[in-house]
Amino acid sequence: MNTKALYWEDFSPGKEWTAERPQPVSRQEIIEFALMFDPLDIHIDPEQAARAPLGVHCASGVHTFAMAQRMLCDAFFLKTNLVAGGKFEALKLLRTVLSGDRLHLSSQVLNAYAHTRKPDRGWVVFKVEVFNQDKNVVLTYDTDVLIMRRPA
């Protein structure tokens, strides 16, 4: 039995979704993620990062993007009859993410359109913004997601 309540029809342009809880960022998580996926000195070694041109130990942009995905899942993807992601566009890393930051997410539906070959599903285009506790935007992007339509 399907327990996911949200279908393509629930995502009309202009509808907004937000993450209910902030995503905390810790030094340990920054280092652990970087060691596995982006092992640059500015992410794995706080002392070397302080001497680097950026001058701060910060989360990888890939890590920030991964945290955004988690917040999208918690906000509504896990309740959605989602088929697959289609693309990411206009990804912009606008500010460094530091240990101690608390990230928030806002997502707005930009467009929704039927799948051209499969009438039981449709695409939804989201504008995603991630911002820190000071309301400074750290990451923005658009993403197209394929979602099942409500059964007749």
Results as ranks from 00 to 15, higher is better:
F65Q: 03
V56P: 00
G55P: 02
F65H: 02
G61R: 14
S60G: 01
P46S: 04
A50N: 01
S60K: 00
C58R: 11
V56D: 03
T64A: 13
I44F: 02
Q69V: 15
R51F: 14
A52E: 09
C73D: 12
C58P: 02
F65E: 00
F65K: 01
S60V: 07
I44V: 15
G61D: 03
R70V: 15
A66R: 10
G61W: 07
A59L: 10
A68W: 09
R70N: 12
S60I: 04
A50W: 03
M67Q: 06
C58N: 06
G61T: 08
Q69R: 03
M71K: 03
S60R: 06
V62Y: 15
V56W: 02
S60W: 03
Q69E: 14
Q69H: 12
T64Y: 05
S60Q: 02
C73N: 14
R70G: 13
A50R: 13
I44S: 04
E47V: 14
L72W: 01
A52K: 05
M67S: 07
S60P: 00
L72K: 06
A59K: 10
V62K: 10
Q69P: 01
A52F: 13
I44P: 02
I44E: 00
A52I: 08
Q69F: 08
E47S: 10
P53E: 08
T64F: 08
A52P: 04
H63R: 01
F65M: 08
S60A: 02
D45H: 05
L54H: 10
A66M: 11
P53A: 12
P53R: 13
G55N: 01
C73P: 00
H63P: 00
G61E: 02
M71C: 05
H63G: 01
L72I: 00
D45G: 06
A50L: 14
A68D: 04
P46V: 13
A66F: 06
H63W: 01
A59R: 03
D45A: 10
R51H: 15
S60T: 00
M71V: 06
R70L: 12
E47Q: 14
H63N: 01
P46T: 10
E47M: 03
F65T: 10
Q48I: 07
A49P: 02
C73I: 14
P46L: 11
Q48Y: 00
A52T: 06
H57P: 01
H57M: 13
H63A: 04
A59N: 04
H57F: 15
D45N: 10
A50V: 06
D45C: 09
A50M: 10
V62D: 11
F65W: 08
D74N: 09
C73H: 08
R51V: 13
S60M: 02
E47H: 10
M67F: 13
E47N: 07
C58A: 15
P53V: 13
Q48S: 11
D74T: 06
R70F: 05
A59S: 07
R51M: 14
H63I: 00
A66H: 01
P53L: 11
T64S: 15
R70Y: 05
C73Y: 14
A52G: 14
Q69N: 13
D45T: 08
P53C: 05
H57E: 02
